[in-house]
């Protein structure tokens, strides 16, 4: 094993070490400060935590690939909301009235297609115009959110299908449906990024786009595929979440893009691209959810939670920079 791989292992392990620290801290602190009698590391509590990580988690996993590419997608929150509306609203459309519960797969498909199409629009613009993904998806974020409001104004879009709710609330081998989707997505994307040509190319493009082009990699189509993928995942996230809740507010999903990016960055993926891992992002997602729940457990309110997460994010990145800089040349310009 070379020094490099060892260093990589240490880096990928860091987020899990952080999770362990969190668990210990909140368990101990919980004994003194918690209002509830329940221990923090309660099995059901942890299962719930995984389930609650799923919506942002699924998006963050996709965001990892986008960021390894050296791009970013700010429109995922709006895509999430629009897909959710398509999901719930389509179940009430008269043309599907005769389908009974068969409307569920149809609506799912429609919602997922919505995500893929919105992602494809982003990807095509990035590919064909060469405009930075940040700008393109910033525009898309506003535009797609506009569509959300055009659909139903300020009104929530609601529809409850009890079969669907049962499915979403089901537990298989103890894990909730949403958790299975999160873990399944993580497994598939991990395979894609570590074992396939597409994953290899994603790292190469993010690390040195020019060299990737010179090696005959078609960068444009590659980007398009990844934006379609993250659109799909944003929609999948919506499908999983709203199958249970049954009601979308037009503001739903706002700031999801930032939470997803936070999780990805906490997991060690670089904003500049070329480096990152799916498994570490999963760690980042869980770490954030642990913080939220843990701080809640010891009696902190939401505002405090956000403040702490913000501080920890900056602290972690600062630490990462310090560790990485060792032995390398410091930038002084």
């Amino acid at each position: 094993m070379t020094k490099d791989t060892r260093a990589n292992l240490v880096k990928q392990g860091a987020i899990w070490a952080f999770i362990v620290v969190e668990l210990i801290f909140f368990t101990v602190a919980g004994n003194f400060m918690s209002v509830s009698e329940q221990s923090f590391i309660d099995f059901d509590n942890m299962l719930l935590l995984l389930k609650q990580s799923a919506p942002i988690g699924i998006i963050a996993l996709g965001m990892t690939i986008i960021m390894i590419n050296g791009n970013i997608d700010l429109s995922v929150g709006a895509t999430f909301a629009l897909s959710a509306i398509v999901l719930l609203d389509s179940m009430t459309w008269p043309i599907f009235a005769g389908l009974g519960d068969w409307v569920i797969p149809v609506s799912w498909t429609l919602a997922l297609l919505t995500g893929v199409v919105l992602g494809a629009i982003n990807g095509l613009i990035v590919w064909k115009t060469g405009v930075d993904a940040f700008i393109v998806t910033l525009g898309a974020m506003l535009g797609y959110r506009g569509l959300v409001f055009m659909y139903n104004g300020e009104q929530p879009t609601s529809h409850l299908n009890w079969t669907l709710v049962d499915f979403a609330e089901a537990q298989f081998l103890g894990l909730h449906t949403a958790t299975w989707f999160l873990l399944g997505t993580a497994l598939v994307l991990w395979l894609v990024m570590t074992k396939t040509v597409h994953g290899r190319n994603a790292y190469a493009i993010g690390n040195n786009r020019e060299a990737a082009v010179n090696a005959g990699i078609r960068v444009g189509p590659h980007f398009l595929l990844n934006f379609m993928l993250i659109g799909f995942l944003a929609a999948l996230s919506a499908v999983v979440f709203y199958s249970e809740s049954g009601s979308v507010n037009p503001n739903d999903g706002m700031l999801y893009e930032l939470w997803a990016i936070t999780a990805v960055v906490l997991g060690g993926t670089k904003l500049t691209g070329g480096y990152g891992s799916i498994v570490s992002t999963l760690g980042g997602v869980i770490a954030i959810q642990l913080l939220r729940k843990g701080l809640g457990h010891i009696g902190a309110d939401t505002e405090t939670v956000n403040l702490v997460i913000g501080l920890i994010l900056i602290a972690v990145l600062f630490l990462d920079r310090q560790l990485n800089r060792k032995g390398k040349e410091e930038l002084k310009i």
């Binding site: 396939t196 040509v197 290899r200 690390n207 040195n208 060299a211 990737a212 010179n214 090696a215």
Partner: peptide, 29 residues
């Protein structure tokens, strides 16, 4: 460094980059 290599990647992956498409077994490299 700017045009020929993906500096952050390992030696093997750099060397096979243009032909990795043909080095697959099923869906995987």
């Amino acid at each position: 460094k700017g045009q020929g290599l993906v500096l952050g990647m390992n030696c093997r992956d750099n060397m096979t980059l243009p032909q990795v498409d043909d080095l697959t077994a099923g869906p995987f490299v």
